[in-house]
Lab assay of single mutants.
Amino acid sequence: TYTWNTKEEAKQAFKELLKEKRVPSNASWEQAMKMIINDPRYSALAKLSEKKQAFNAYKVQTE
């Protein structure tokens, strides 16, 4: 089980997950979700809006 003390740690864990699963920077949210949804870190960020925000930040960083 994973635990995160801060929102920032949770966001980092979520981005690490995207990186580890090699989600391409041109992937849509739907494509990315299919690649990461079974990992416990997918739940790091509770709100869908937070997940999408972190995903978009990840995409910008990896382009």
Rank of each mutant, 00 (worst) to 15 (best):
T1S: 15
T1N: 12
T1F: 12
Y2N: 15
Y2W: 11
T3M: 10
T3H: 13
T3D: 12
T3R: 05
W4M: 05
W4S: 06
W4Y: 13
W4L: 02
W4N: 08
W4C: 09
W4I: 05
N5I: 12
T6N: 09
T6Q: 04
T6K: 03
E8C: 10
E8M: 06
E9C: 06
E9Y: 04
E9W: 03
A10E: 06
K11Q: 15
K11G: 09
K11W: 15
K11R: 12
Q12P: 00
Q12I: 12
Q12Y: 10
A13K: 05
A13N: 05
A13R: 05
F14V: 00
F14Y: 02
K15W: 15
K15D: 15
K15G: 14
K15F: 15
K15A: 15
E16I: 05
E16A: 14
E16Y: 05
E16V: 05
E16P: 00
E16C: 09
E16S: 08
L17T: 01
L17A: 08
L18A: 00
L18P: 00
L18R: 01
L18S: 00
L18D: 00
L18H: 01
L18C: 05
K19P: 00
K19I: 15
K19Q: 15
K19Y: 13
K19G: 12
K19F: 15
E20D: 13
E20M: 05
E20I: 04
K21L: 06
K21I: 04
K21Y: 09
K21N: 08
R22Y: 07
V23Y: 02
V23R: 00
V23C: 04
S25H: 13
S25F: 14
N26C: 12
N26P: 03
N26K: 07
N26W: 14
A27G: 05
A27Q: 04
A27E: 03
S28N: 11
S28R: 08
S28L: 06
E30L: 08
E30H: 11
E30K: 12
Q31M: 09
Q31G: 06
Q31C: 10
Q31V: 11
Q31P: 00
Q31W: 06
A32F: 01
A32H: 00
A32I: 04
A32K: 00
M33F: 05
M33V: 14
K34W: 09
K34Q: 12
K34H: 11
M35S: 06
I36Y: 01
I36H: 00
I36T: 05
I36M: 04
I37E: 12
I37R: 11
I37A: 13
I37M: 13
N38E: 09
N38T: 11
N38M: 10
D39L: 01
P40N: 07
P40G: 06
P40C: 08
P40R: 07
R41P: 00
R41I: 03
Y42P: 00
Y42G: 01
Y42K: 00
Y42H: 02
S43G: 13
S43A: 12
S43L: 15
S43F: 13
A44R: 04
A44T: 04
A44I: 05
A44V: 05
L45Y: 03
L45C: 04
L45N: 01
A46H: 09
A46F: 06
A46Q: 15
K47E: 14
K47S: 14
K47M: 09
L48C: 09
S49W: 09
S49C: 10
S49T: 07
E50S: 05
E50L: 04
K51E: 01
K51A: 04
K51N: 02
K51G: 02
K52A: 03
K52F: 06
Q53P: 02
Q53F: 06
Q53E: 14
Q53W: 07
Q53C: 10
Q53R: 11
Q53L: 10
Q53V: 07
A54V: 11
A54R: 01
F55G: 02
F55S: 02
F55M: 03
N56Q: 13
N56F: 10
N56M: 11
N56T: 08
N56D: 13
N56A: 13
A57M: 10
A57N: 13
A57E: 15
A57H: 10
A57K: 10
A57G: 05
Y58E: 03
Y58K: 01
Y58M: 03
Y58A: 02
K59L: 10
K59T: 08
K59H: 04
V60E: 15
Q61W: 10
Q61S: 14
Q61N: 12
Q61D: 14
T62K: 08
T62G: 12
T62A: 10
E63R: 07
